[in-house]
Amino acid sequence: MNPGNRGTVILVLLLAIIAAPVTAAVYFTTSAPGIITKGDTFSISGTGAVNGTVGIWIVGRDHFEVLTTAPDRHGNFSITIKPSATNRFSSGQYAIVFQDPGASGVLEIEGGTDVNDNLVVMNRGKIVTRLGHRQDLGENIRPIAGQILSSSSIPGMDDIFQVEYFFVEEPAVFFNNLIPASGFRLPDQITGERIVISGTTNIATENAISTEIRTRNTKELVTVKTIPVISGDPMNTWIWDLDAPGLPPGDYELTVGWVKSNTTVMGVFTVKYPAPPSSPSDGKPVDEKIPRQDDYTFPVLVACSLIVLAIVLYYAGRE
């Protein structure tokens, strides 16, 4: 290759690199991996958004909105969905679509509604796709997201899209180690020992869980405690414990809940006395050999026989 051609190739490569689309790295902060719990904060943030104002499409069952935010001069951005907003989300799958304006610096694809209140996708104000009515979006949101993403193939349009899917759920708290087919019965505990009871939840780690112990028969309050939510995968976790000596023998109820959403669950358990130590057996151990006893049956039998024979011979001689 001659120097002139080599220079041309290098120039073409540089132009290709310069013209390549640059998009941001996007991060999501959710209640638990892949889960947005109603009443929890949900946030979308990113870095490297150097092309200008970005868009966030939130599409779910009967939910459709497009938010925009301008990154700072370093390309960082963040959008926070408040608990009051997520509390209105319907349970089910949601698509979160990130939209980068591309090299043009302008968001050309927009969301909106037509005169018949149909949800639409528009390119510079011109409708390119109708998504139907909001209440008809349904539970399977992937085809709807696919229609939004397909707009990136419109000739002359340089917007860049990324999509992530999440499930919106009602707040829930669960116990570990529930005894099967027993309702909400937990394993028995031993008085004098530390008590540890654990579980899982889909609420976020910035929340706290309230707990209380009551006697099962009289409902007398024994103790109240606030415990943290611990990050986990696939679910967050919680641990309630009570140091030794634990609780007196009896039946108890443990109520665990998230006061913010009035979500509670109750488990019952029994505290028992320790099992008494096993006493040694009065009999001899099974594996101990029993000494052999002397058997005098045969000698006695022989002696008796000789005595009888002597008596018989004595009387026979007299006759």
Rank of each mutant, 00 (worst) to 15 (best):
L67T: 00
D159K: 05
T201H: 09
G146H: 04
L137R: 04
V66P: 00
M157H: 08
G111S: 11
D188P: 03
G111N: 03
T80E: 12
G92N: 11
V97D: 03
E170C: 00
T205D: 05
T113L: 12
F184V: 08
R142A: 10
E110R: 11
Y165K: 09
R142F: 02
Q162R: 08
S91N: 15
E164I: 06
F167Y: 12
V97T: 14
R88F: 02
Y165S: 14
H63T: 11
D114M: 02
T201V: 08
T68E: 07
I179T: 07
S150W: 00
E108Y: 14
V97R: 01
R61T: 06
Q99E: 13
G125I: 14
N118K: 02
L131P: 06
V173W: 06
H133M: 10
S152N: 07
V120L: 03
F174T: 12
E139A: 14
E65P: 09
V121E: 07
S182K: 00
G102H: 10
I148K: 09
I109H: 04
E164S: 15
A181G: 03
H63F: 15
N123K: 15
V196H: 06
N123L: 15
D72L: 01
N87L: 09
N176K: 11
N116Q: 11
D100K: 01
V168E: 00
P187C: 14
M157F: 06
I154R: 08
A70D: 10
P143I: 02
Y165D: 14
